[in-house]
Write a protein that binds this DNA or RNA. Structure first.
Lengths: 328, 328
DNA sequence: CTGAAAGCGCTTACAG
DNA sequence: CTGAAAGCGCTTACAG
């Protein structure tokens, strides 16, 4: 019993009594095939159970119709929104995107040390990472890349004005005669983007312009419990406080802790998040809204253009965030 | 000014004065190359900025060293845990995995209607989906596939005993003299897995064995607000109740709502979730723990074996969940 | 509308 | 240790 040889386009051509070119045209839905021929070839394909080899197609056609989207991690809602924005554009040209989250050392290495990885699909969208450093090694000049949430020096970038967003939060929280605290994400490794720094800097700028100052800044990891414990510290320092959570993910635990100890938002304290996730809406948290889906669709659009060959020098597109005033 | 032709292995070979085979051996780290030759070739590669074409490599080598992991959506923690389990095994052989979340119609279509998609990487891990239906179209017999959280009739499956998990929850909540409610996920489309049904069935079985019965079952979408509103309904029906949330994602809003209206867990009501996510630990919610990482690593291990050619008939591996007793 | 053939850029026995 | 050559399985002008 010998190994079943994989059936190829040649087998189909022979059995159908046509040339391989014709079979190729059929599987690619090329309109220049007589309806009759096409039908027949299709039947033979069925009978033989023929499946085109994607690697061969990609080698000769030169494209994969796939884009890789690199995220620092998979946190859920934010990434799904961004991705659906990206999708909305890619779909127009029959493209789709794979996700590659970089939550581990090994995953970093794959991106940094394997050119196959980088060149394996038609383009790259990189979110919230120092893409210039990340892709230093293996980037041919013509590889389409778009950076999101990080201002690249080499590629098109689409960002939200995080500094301005921070200012919006500052303008809001400076209204209250309370001690001002910041809870932000501690940057780990130099490949992470600087969005959090920008938010914090904008916030501080606004606060100082108003002649106020920030009592304390807490830098923590992206972790529910750490934020919860930070809230504990803040509230034990001063009951009356205004807290800027540089991401909604930190605002939730803060609100949670406040509830546990019976503090009432908009009375005992104020809180402003960043991101405008669904949960902020439900929990009625004041926050800074980023146009996440729009950011994705712009990134997708730019990438698609580059893939299709519209060359142009890199630009940076900056979207404006807005304050969503709610009950905290 | 003419288009810069892409530089290939031939260019390197010519400039280095060696055969293409030698260049190939160098870039593949084949040990049978004289150190001197290797060094020289490497230098030429540098100078020319040569980057091997991954499609060509894949066509002739026959593999991509990549696996595709298909999730129904990207919810965050659960998937990251599962993926890290999968990674832990794949990494041993230099493999990594791309994520393909199926949160949209279009994404379903890519999987179902494109053989390039299915055959584009060396193997598939499919989570919580009816993989037998999903992959009906384009699956050659030798394509390595492993199903997670769904018992496939065609492929290896690794599951948690959800029925048993449901029973554990039932055994726990039946202890209290309270009205019993279930909040579960409404299955949308026949491609979703049946884990929720199994959890619910196990739960009911246990409850009935104890001579009790379930007052009402709520089937909702995977949505914070819907769960929150469901809690509202339940608590307005009967103050004293025992709630089984078929996923922790539903348990969080329930607890939240209870807090809002001043109901105390383990006194005014009881609550048991499912999944044991970090937040359940923090919020002190009693839940059913699934060995998520283990599930991933077993799936990764099986897939890897199939890729490497260890054929064997499909098996189903069932892991046991356990009750994590906390303060609800 | 269709076939024969060149070409995509590698890997891998094979022979030395 | 190394080179020449076949082969991987397609797509795409080209000629008809």
């Amino acid at each position: 019993m010998r190994k079943k040889r994989k059936i190829t386009i040649k087998d189909v051509a022979k059995k159908a009594g046509v040339g391989v070119g014709t079979v190729s045209r059929v599987i690619n839905n090329n309109p220049h095939v007589k309806a009759q021929t096409k039908e027949h070839v299709l039947k033979v394909i069925q009978e033989l159970g023929y499946l085109p080899n994607p690697h061969a197609r990609r080698l000769s056609s030169g494209h994969t119709k796939i884009v890789t989207t690199i995220f620092p991690q998979m946190v859920g809602e934010f990434h799904q929104l961004l991705l659906s924005g990206i999708d909305s554009e890619l779909e127009k040209e029959g493209y789709t995107s794979f996700v590659y989250p970089l939550y581990s050392e090994n995953r970093y290495n794959f991106v940094r040390e394997s050119s196959d990885f980088v060149l394996g699909t038609d383009g790259l969208i990189v979110d919230a990472l120092n893409v210039d450093q990340l892709l230093l090694q293996f980037i041919p000049k013509n590889m389409p890349v778009v950076s999101v949430e990080y201002e690249s020096e080499m590629y098109d970038s689409v960002l939200v004005d995080n500094y301005y967003g921070g200012m919006l939060a500052g303008d809001y929280l400076a209204n209250f005669d309370e001690e001002i605290y910041i809870i932000t994400h501690k940057k780990e490794g130099q490949l992470e983007s600087t969005v959090f720094e920008e938010r914090v800097n904008g916030f501080i700028e606004s606060i100082e312009r108003k002649g106020r100052k920030v009592t304390q800044i807490f830098e923590i990891q992206l972790d529910w419990l750490q934020a919860f414990n930070t809230a504990k510290i803040i509230f034990s320092n001063s009951k009356k406080c205004a807290i800027f959570a540089a991401t909604d993910y930190f605002a939730f635990p803060v609100l949670e802790y406040a509830r546990v100890v019976g503090l009432e938002p908009n009375k005992d304290f104020h809180l402003c998040g960043f991101d405008n996730l669904t949960l902020s809406d439900i929990l009625n948290i004041t926050t800074i809204k980023q146009p996440i889906v729009e950011m994705g669709s712009i990134a997708g659009q730019i990438l698609l253009r580059k893939i299709l060959g519209y060359v142009r020098k890199p630009q940076t597109i900056v979207l404006k965030p807005e304050l969503i005033l709610r009950k905290t």
